[in-house]
Computed example of a mutant assay.
Amino acid sequence: MEQATQTVVQPKARKVKTLNQGYWQKYGVFYLMMAPALIVIIINNYLPMAGALIAFKKITYESRSFFVNFMNGEWVGLKNFEFLFKTSDAWRITRNTVAYNLVFIVLNLIIGVAFALMFNMMRNRRLAKLHQTIMFLPFFLSWVILSYLVYAFFNPALGIMNKEILHWFGASEVEWYSDPKWWPLVLPILNTWKGIGYYAVIYLAAIIGIDKEYYEAATIDGASRMKQVWSITMPLIRPVIIVLTMLQIGRIFYADFGLFFNATRNAGALYDTTLVIDTYVYQGFLVSGNIGLSSAAGFYQAIVGFVLVLGSNFIVRRVSKDDALF
């Protein structure tokens, strides 16, 4: 009986050892190929995480080197975070940041998918490529440049909106940079106009990758174009939609600084509807010169974004395990 047991156990141990050796022989070259990129990621993405300690120190701009300031900075615990949570503007900046990003996510999803479907249905491929290029162009322009275009529209004295468009509809002129009530509508339009080409191209790439045989079979069965979209296209591009949406959810506490600072020309009269976490921290840094305050805001945004991505991925995993990001 003992001899039988020994004959079963010993080959099993040798088998595991052989499998481990075979694994590295088979995949070791791929790890070697990944090594340069992994080293760059560690140096560029992970080592700088030590800078998160700045959020718990009082570091001001001085003539000394930043490293000396960092090493000699006074530990202040969570006092830098009080700048965000105990200020009278905490609720306003948080509300604006989250609300705008939620609107941006919905618009990028609906309009991005809609344009991707339209591009895919265009019969003239050259014309479709032209439309895609024109739509993608604003994505590559900075908000510094686009802010002048926005100002050309909304300049109270010479802008196209006041001098031309509003007159066509018989409406009175608007003081765009003094009246905050219009900007909850203007900012989503500007953000969508600038970035929708990026999302449309990604969704279009996912649609093009769908096997044409699905549509041919649906056409033979008499399915209309709209029925094909709902029954074939949307289910098959759902993983791409989920990934892009989750990535945007992870940045829901971040705001596009160029959009909220340059496009609004940082007009104080608009702060009630345009002041967000990023612009508020920037202004606080200009006043106090305390780097720790800005670092605390970035650390807070990163932690919240990380938690939101984990939470949204957990929900997706419970609903559809195959569509989860990880």
Rank of each mutant, 00 (worst) to 15 (best):
N96E: 10
K17T: 13
M246N: 10
L149S: 12
T233P: 02
A152Q: 11
Y148N: 14
Y215E: 09
Y198P: 04
R123D: 05
A37N: 08
K12R: 09
L293T: 10
H167N: 11
L308H: 03
S178G: 15
E175L: 12
V98Y: 04
P188R: 11
W182N: 13
L102V: 15
W193T: 03
I196A: 03
V9S: 01
A296P: 05
I39N: 01
G268Q: 15
F56A: 05
K227Y: 01
N120D: 14
L204T: 08
T219Q: 14
E74I: 06
F326D: 12
F299C: 08
S178P: 01
T192M: 13
V68R: 10
W24S: 02
K26W: 10
R238H: 04
G258L: 07
D179W: 03
L137T: 13
V8S: 08
A223G: 03
Q21W: 15
R126N: 15
I241K: 06
F136I: 01
W91L: 15
K79I: 00
A55P: 02
Q228A: 12
S295P: 01
Q228K: 13
S65L: 11
F153G: 04
F70D: 00
G209K: 03
P235C: 06
Y198A: 06
Y23G: 05
D322Y: 10
I111K: 06
F66T: 08
M34T: 11
A35I: 10
Y177R: 04
T60A: 04
V174L: 01
A4P: 00
L190T: 04
N162V: 07
F70S: 00
W143Y: 10
F257E: 02
A255P: 08
L19T: 12
R251V: 01
Y214T: 07
L32T: 03
L190W: 02
I145T: 12
D89H: 06
S312Y: 05
A4F: 06
Y61L: 11
N313Q: 05
G73V: 06
A269C: 04
D278H: 02
I111V: 15
V240R: 02
I249E: 02
M135F: 02
E82K: 09
L190S: 03
M122R: 00
G51P: 04
N80D: 09
G112V: 05
W183M: 01
F66L: 14
A116K: 07
F169E: 00
G197I: 09
W143G: 04
D323H: 14
I105L: 14
F253A: 04
